[in-house]
Simulated assay, not measured.
Amino acid sequence: MIRCAIFDCDGTLVDSGGTIHRALGMAFDAHGLELPPRQRAQRVIGLSLVEAMAELAPGLDDAQHSAMAETYRQSFVTLRGQQQVDEPLFDGILSLLDRLEAAGWLLAVATGKSDRGLRHCLTAHGLHARFLSLQTADRHPSKPHPSMALTAMADCGAVPEQCVVIGDTAWDMGMAKSAGMHAIGALWGYHDRDELNGSGADALAAAPADVFDIAENLVRIAA
């Protein structure tokens, strides 16, 4: 039996909200727009960039949303070049990955980041090689479309009943449910428990240390 744990990145593996908000501010300023408050802006974390811009600036057209997404990408590159990108791992993530791997789980990532952004993030923490499948917005529709999760599952040779998505947003829970997978809501991230429950979470984890037992129980019940 192949078991696969598919992690979101921003808000689940790493706390990147501050850096994302700074890059968004640079992009909005470049286009003469006022960035919404951080509490609202961080709600779009997890969406692909164009979809995120459409949520934050609904009065613009598709071409403007695409232009803002590109400005955001360049802003993030600028911040990285200035060594101002701060994406610390959440406490307990390394121990969780260790425990899952020791129990035979295969690990994957499904994220709204780009390939480049995810590679930089995971490499900085020495994690890149630990994930068998890395799925990003460069090659898939935005969450909650199931494409990223289904491709990660195929890479691992698993079936939906033996896959668990761990994420902090409604988009992650929707992706999991659309793919027929179990969904664990990460309460340490950017959406609250009502949003996670409302979008189909099978269980909520207050901290990374809670995830292992929840995941084991979900796949055991499905077996």
Rank of each mutant, 00 (worst) to 15 (best):
M1T: 14
R3H: 05
G11P: 03
T12G: 14
D15K: 12
D15C: 05
G17H: 11
G17K: 07
G25N: 10
F28S: 10
H31C: 09
G32S: 07
E34W: 02
E34N: 02
E34I: 03
L35P: 02
P37L: 08
R38P: 05
R38K: 12
A41T: 13
R43A: 11
V44M: 14
L47P: 03
A54V: 01
L60G: 10
D62V: 10
A63H: 15
M68W: 15
A69S: 14
T71D: 13
T71Q: 06
R73E: 12
Q74C: 02
Q74K: 03
T78L: 13
T78S: 04
T78Y: 14
L79S: 09
Q84I: 00
Q84H: 08
D86T: 09
F90H: 00
F90R: 00
L94A: 09
S95K: 04
S95W: 00
L97K: 05
E101W: 11
E101D: 12
G104A: 12
L107Y: 01
V109H: 00
A110N: 04
T111F: 03
T111V: 02
S114T: 15
R116C: 08
R119T: 06
H120K: 05
C121G: 02
L122C: 07
L122S: 07
T123N: 06
H125V: 09
H128R: 14
R130I: 11
R130A: 08
F131R: 03
A137F: 07
D138K: 00
P141A: 15
K143I: 11
K143R: 12
L150A: 06
T151A: 12
A152F: 04
D155F: 07
C156N: 07
C156Q: 02
G157D: 13
P160D: 12
E161T: 10
Q162K: 14
V164C: 06
D168A: 01
T169E: 14
W171P: 02
G174C: 06
G174K: 01
G174D: 12
M175R: 05
G180N: 10
L187T: 08
H191K: 04
H191P: 05
E195D: 10
L196V: 08
G200N: 10
G200F: 06
G200V: 03
G200I: 12
D202F: 09
A205R: 08
A205E: 13
A206K: 04
A209C: 07
A209E: 13
D213C: 07
D213S: 13
I214Y: 01
E216L: 13
E216W: 02
N217E: 13
L218F: 01
V219K: 06
I221M: 10
A222E: 05
A222I: 14
